[in-house]
Amino acid sequence: MRILKDNVILRILNSYLVDSPQPANLTYLWNFGSLLGLCLVLQILTGCFLAMHYTPNVDMAFNSVEHIMRDVQSGWIIRYTHANVASFFFTFLYIHVAKGLYYNSYKSPRVLLWSIGVIILILMMAIGFLGYVLPFGQMSLWGATVITNLLSAIPVFGQDIVELIWGGFSVSNATLNRFFSLHYILPFVLAALVVAHFMALHIHGSNNPNGVTAHADRYPMYPFFIFKDLVTVFAFFLVLSIFVFFYPNLLGHSDNYIPADPMVTPVSIVPEWYLLPFYAILRSIPNKLLGVLAMFGALLIFLILPLTDISRIRGNQFRPAMKILFWFFIVDFLILFWIGSQHPATPYLEIGQIATAFYFAWFIVIVPLTGLVENTLLDISTKDKS
């Protein structure tokens, strides 16, 4: 019986990682999936080691991180690797999502694959925020206070929900314990979702730069694409090593290297860099409740793309207008990155409002309208030929 089970496991691994047929024209943009899987493994491993020495207590959390850095053998490497891989994780994720948008990977028959990917994105945001709080520096404390306080905008039950999350009337030991527990457990939930994502991918196979599903001209995963993935894996390790050994704090906020002090408010409260676009959307709307809804809606809106993109043409490389509009969206997203790091004052507030309006309009108005025009022109072209 055990031999039978082992054979089943080996057959599954073989079908996914060895004999899985992949389109021959895949580019290096398709390597970011494997890089994301590698980042997840690194984060879980380094996180488990850090948890052995971390103390989730408001009086000892900051010092326990310093203890890891100074006293634990190679602790500084583990801590800096964990912190910097988080930034690479989100960088690769944004590129992976942008690739999916450009090549229309959300269209049928890959709607389930896309939907699981969006859930993974939202869960990663939550895990990243929880981890940002754990060092309990100034930005950790005030970031946790501001972001959790947003839920108080919910009518009737808002303040009760905030106090339930805090475990009291402010960010305290109970809050830190809960955030630590969730930050430790949720990556394993994320890993389960990644497996589901991988299974959904295996059903219909990868999309390709042409956007057209073709069962011909495919190569097995091993050795062709495994070795192709290794090129970017080694490049990633090289760049990560440069960050860890030479610029470990480049992507961190300087205020988070100051112990948390509830009596001193930082000049500017900002989340980690990878959450800045959604923070900019939150701040661009004057109404607190609408701002919170817009922030969460900015993530959930990716789920409607399979419905709003009605174009019969697959892949933006065959859609000149949509290709230009896609790059407008990327520029808009980068503007939101910039606005999220600035003080909410003129002219940044007005620029953020315009960028936020374009962000939502792109999904709700621009994408379906462009698809409608393309379908109309396609019908006219077909009638002319006939």
Rank of each mutant, 00 (worst) to 15 (best):
R110H: 10
M263I: 05
R11S: 15
Q43M: 10
L293P: 11
A214Q: 14
P368N: 05
K99V: 09
Y28R: 04
Q353R: 12
H96S: 08
Q43S: 02
F363A: 08
V231P: 13
L369I: 06
V195K: 03
T91L: 15
L230G: 05
F129K: 00
S206L: 11
L38W: 06
I203G: 01
T265N: 06
W114Y: 08
L29Q: 06
V41S: 12
Y219L: 15
I285E: 08
F129G: 00
R178L: 11
T232R: 01
T148Q: 09
P266N: 01
I119T: 11
F225Y: 15
Y132S: 00
V97N: 03
M125D: 00
G371V: 09
T175W: 08
K99H: 12
F129W: 07
P187E: 02
G168V: 03
F136D: 09
G352T: 10
S115P: 12
R312F: 11
Y257N: 05
G143T: 02
E272V: 00
T370R: 02
K383V: 07
G128D: 00
L151P: 08
G137Q: 04
T145V: 03
L282K: 06
L35E: 03
V373E: 14
I95W: 06
Y54H: 05
N63Q: 14
I301C: 03
V365T: 03
G100E: 10
F246K: 09
I127L: 00
A86W: 00
I324N: 05
A83L: 06
N256M: 12
K288F: 14
A61Y: 12
I122Q: 01
V194E: 10
F246H: 11
Q43D: 01
